[in-house]
Simulated scan of single mutants.
Amino acid sequence: MTSPLMPPSDHDDARVESLSAITLATHDMPRAVRFYEALGFRIVHGGANEAFTSFALGTSFLNITSETHGPIQWWGRVIIYVSDVDAFYRKARANGIEPQFAPRDAPWNERYFHLTDPDGHELSFARPL
């Protein structure tokens, strides 16, 4: 789809499809897990004694990652599913946005890359493998 404001490009097939997950940082994973379990969130990966825990939220996820050094400097990450990770990466670069790294396959069965928005929010663009 093209817009009168933007000319068509070879990146038109790179579309945002859905919000996959939000990842938040914690200093105390057992406390965080107890909190979210008390609210009825269901663990699908990790747990109180793990460095990373994922809770199912319908078709999306809330991830908690353990940050153990000093004050939490990193707020977390929004994970957005796109139609084609590599095409979306090329689209970002073509628009002057430099991602943190090129797309890669993750052991949790997603292809993804990260970039940081102008306010320092980390965004991950991904697609299940």
Rank of each mutant, 00 (worst) to 15 (best):
A32V: 12
L24P: 00
Y112E: 10
E110R: 06
E17Y: 02
E98Q: 08
R104H: 15
S83W: 15
D28L: 02
R127W: 09
V16W: 01
D119P: 14
N109R: 10
S66L: 06
E17I: 00
V78N: 11
T26S: 05
E110D: 13
E98G: 05
D84P: 14
S60A: 15
M1D: 09
F88C: 04
P128Y: 12
P118W: 14
T26Y: 00
S9N: 13
G70T: 04
S3M: 10
H69Y: 05
F113K: 07
P128G: 12
P71L: 02
R93K: 06
D119S: 15
F52I: 11
L57P: 03
V78H: 12
D28G: 06
V85G: 11
G70H: 03
V16E: 04
V44M: 05
E17S: 01
A51P: 02
E110C: 09
S54T: 04
A32L: 10
I22H: 00
S60R: 04
V33F: 14
H45P: 02
P118C: 12
V44W: 03
S9C: 11
T59D: 05
R15E: 09
V33W: 15
D117T: 13
Y112V: 04
E67K: 02
S9K: 09
A94F: 01
R42L: 02
I43M: 06
P4G: 12
P4C: 10
D12W: 10
T2A: 08
Y112S: 06
L115V: 13
H11D: 10
A14F: 07
G70A: 00
D117I: 12
V33C: 11
L62T: 09
L129K: 14
I64E: 07
T23H: 00
G46S: 06
A14G: 02
P7L: 10
F113C: 12
M1T: 02
L62H: 09
Q73H: 00
A32D: 15
N109P: 01
V33M: 07
E67Y: 07
I64V: 10
R111H: 14
A126M: 12
Q100A: 14
S20Y: 01
F125I: 08
L19I: 03
P118L: 10
R15Q: 05
G58A: 05
L129I: 12
A48E: 11
F55R: 03
H121M: 11
L19P: 01
L123M: 12
G40S: 10
I80G: 15
D28W: 09
D117H: 09
I43Q: 07
S3A: 12
T59P: 01
E122K: 13
R34F: 14
A48Q: 04
F55V: 07
G40R: 04
S18E: 02
G40Q: 08
M1E: 08
L5Y: 13
S66N: 13
L5W: 14
Q100P: 03
I64P: 06
V85S: 07
T59L: 02
P99Y: 12
V44Q: 05
W74V: 07
P4F: 01
A21V: 01
I22Q: 00
E110T: 11
F41V: 11
T26A: 00
R93S: 03
S9H: 14
I97C: 06
R77W: 03
D105N: 03
F101Q: 10
Y89P: 00
V33I: 13
D28C: 05
P118A: 10
P118E: 14
